[in-house]
Amino acid sequence: MSSYSQPTRRRHLGDKRLIQMFIIPTVVLLILMNVFPLIYSLYLSFTEYSAINPTPPEWVGLDNYKKVLSDNLYWHNFAVTGRYALISVSLQMIVGFGLAMLLKEKFKGSGLLTTLILVPMMLSPAVVGAFWKNIFNPSFGIFDQFLGYSDPNTAPEWLGDPDLALWAVVIVDVWMWSPFVMLLSLAGLSAIPDYLYEAAAIDRASAWFQFRRITLPQVMPLLLIAVLFRTIEAFKQFDLVMGLTGGGPSLLQGTQAVNVTETVSVKLFRLAMPPQAQTGLSSAMAYVVLVIIIAISNLYIRALNKVREG
């Protein structure tokens, strides 16, 4: 009797234990690294607290949120981020999709060219920021020379001019991430079967009509995914700004000085880190960003489902 039950029991335990052995470490790690900070920061966002101060968190209710949402200073950061995301993502879509349309037809060397275009995407943003800082330099950078300015005194100061600085960040972001949009677009374009174009030719559709009624709707799901990814990334924009401008230059707006390229993430970083170390306030701001990103993602996903189902 026992000789039968023994192996059965051992195997039964073994299965269960094996599953636990695989799952428990992951779950523990997730709780420690993700779930706990998420919930704890939510709690902190309702308190007055500084991580470098020994005084315990003091409950202040919605005060932090009120401040983030009503103070013009913070509103400025959201406005910068929104404008940056809109311009940068739009340009990336145009440039990326345009490149994909050009590279759709195979020609000699098109594979190599596609690979080369993808290179910026593979670089570290910190490195990209560092060398574009040199490229934008008005006295020795090649960007102004490329545009035809030979005199460093009259050449535009891309990173120092409050009117140009945000565009400088946009240019670098477009340079770096248009290839990503191109890659997704190429995948979408090459998935359109040739026979649809043959049918369209038989149906006497002009090139423009084919593009509008077949090409665009067929790649739309992938384009929307590209927009979703790039928008979320744009809202989190931090590394390029830190590498290029550090958030500056500053501009007098009314009575307040604002940093023209200071995105929400950069502001958040400044608030959270010493010397400011306003942990409660920065947590509230982080939650506002989170809600915005979730809301935007939701809109895109709805649009995506609509495109897919019709």
Partner: peptide, 14 residues
Amino acid sequence: IAFVFQFFALYSHM
């Protein structure tokens, strides 16, 4: 002319 394809070649998104 009109052409009818073996695998229909309908516009799948319409």
